[in-house]
């Protein structure tokens, strides 16, 4: 009998070996394929966090949808926030398929979110008091997210890669949208420029924190190594942060923005940015679910989910009645 036909009779160790060989050959793992528990858990953690971050991330931006100044801006930001919800949808589907063998579905993800068992990018859950914040979120927060998502495009998990491909295509619109918002303020009145600068000051630390600490020394634990071993990601936190600074600091200076870090400079010898580290103790607190606006926004999400329970119940009832 041909060797490939005998996959089912392999023991777990052989299956693991077979799995690692596939990954190292650059093959993509699919949802129904055999995978080590460790890999499944790493994927669930990474992708559900990513998906929920998109959905929760829509909430601070949504505050600016009605307030967007012109008809055209209203349309564009609506489309942008909708895309973020759409990214959440794509990613949750990927996570849900991974959780299905464990007997979990979307409802469980939501419950985990509400009980704070499921983490998301809390660093972005800060107050966004002005239109300047909307512009900075659209330009720099999205800019940071684009870098980390692009890095994972070649991930070993096929369904995640396909979702990321769709997401990154849409992000290229988000990048232009963000630039357009920022440029309009930078070209504008003193009041508009000031609004932009103040927003940059508010978001700077969060942007640096978003990429995570350099090594686990700063926070005590990190899943980066495992994610690299399983080819889920290809760059370290610090590599991404350096890329971010290289991409955005010169542009920020060009439009007359002050970087809220007097010490920042590019070291020609080391070929890297030297910058003031954000407060990683603060980071630890925020990551564990205590961002300035985390509770408020969780509450918003939870109360709307619960108030609409009757809708899901009603339609679930039709389907189960039709089947049963």
């Amino acid at each position: 009998m041909i060797e490939q036909l005998t996959f089912d009779v392999l023991n777990d160790e052989q299956k693991y070996q077979h799995f690692m060989e596939r990954i190292n050959r650059g093959e993509k793992i699919e949802a129904d394929d055999w995978m080590p528990d460790d890999y499944r858990q790493a994927l669930i953690r990474l992708i559900s966090m990513h998906g929920i971050s998109e959905i929760m991330g829509a909430l601070p931006e949504k505050e600016w949808v009605p307030k967007a100044p012109t008809l055209n801006r209203k349309l564009a930001i609506m489309a942008k926030v909708q895309d973020e919800m759409g990214h959440g949808q794509l990613l949750l589907r990927v996570a849900e398929d991974l959780m299905k063998p464990l007997g979990k579905n979307r409802d469980n993800i939501m419950q985990d979110l509400f009980s704070k068992r499921l983490k998301f990018h809390n660093v972005f859950h800060m107050p966004s008091p002005t239109w300047g914040d909307a512009a900075v979120i659209a330009w720099l927060v999205d800019g940071a997210a684009i870098l980390s998502q692009t890095m994972m495009l070649d991930t070993s998990y096929g369904p995640y890669g396909r979702a990321l491909k769709r997401i990154c295509q849409e992000e290229s619109f988000h990048a232009k949208h963000g630039e357009s918002l920022v440029l309009s303020l930078a070209e504008g009145t003193d009041k508009q420029k000031q609004m932009l600068q103040e927003a940059v000051n508010r978001w700077w630390d969060a942007l640096l924190m978003f990429f995570g600490p350099k090594s686990k020394n700063e926070t005590g634990h990190s899943n980066v190594d495992k994610n690299i071993k399983y080819k889920l990601r290809t760059k370290t936190n610090e590599q991404l942060r350096q890329e971010f600074l290289t991409k955005y600091v010169p542009k920020m200076k060009l439009i007359g923005l002050d970087i809220p870090d007097k010490t920042i400079r590019f070291d020609e010898d080391k070929q890297e940015w030297i910058y003031k580290e954000p407060d990683w103790n603060e980071f630890k607190k925020i990551v564990s679910g205590n961002g300035p606006k985390t509770n408020e926004r969780l509450h918003l999400r939870q109360s709307s989910y619960e108030q609409n329970e009757w809708v899901r119940e009603a339609l679930g009832h039709i389907s189960s009645a039709a089947v049963g």
Binding site: N105, G316, S320
Partner: peptide, 10 residues
Amino acid sequence: KDHHESDAFY
């Protein structure tokens, strides 16, 4: 939670 119905919705 009625798990049957939440499953049927999803």
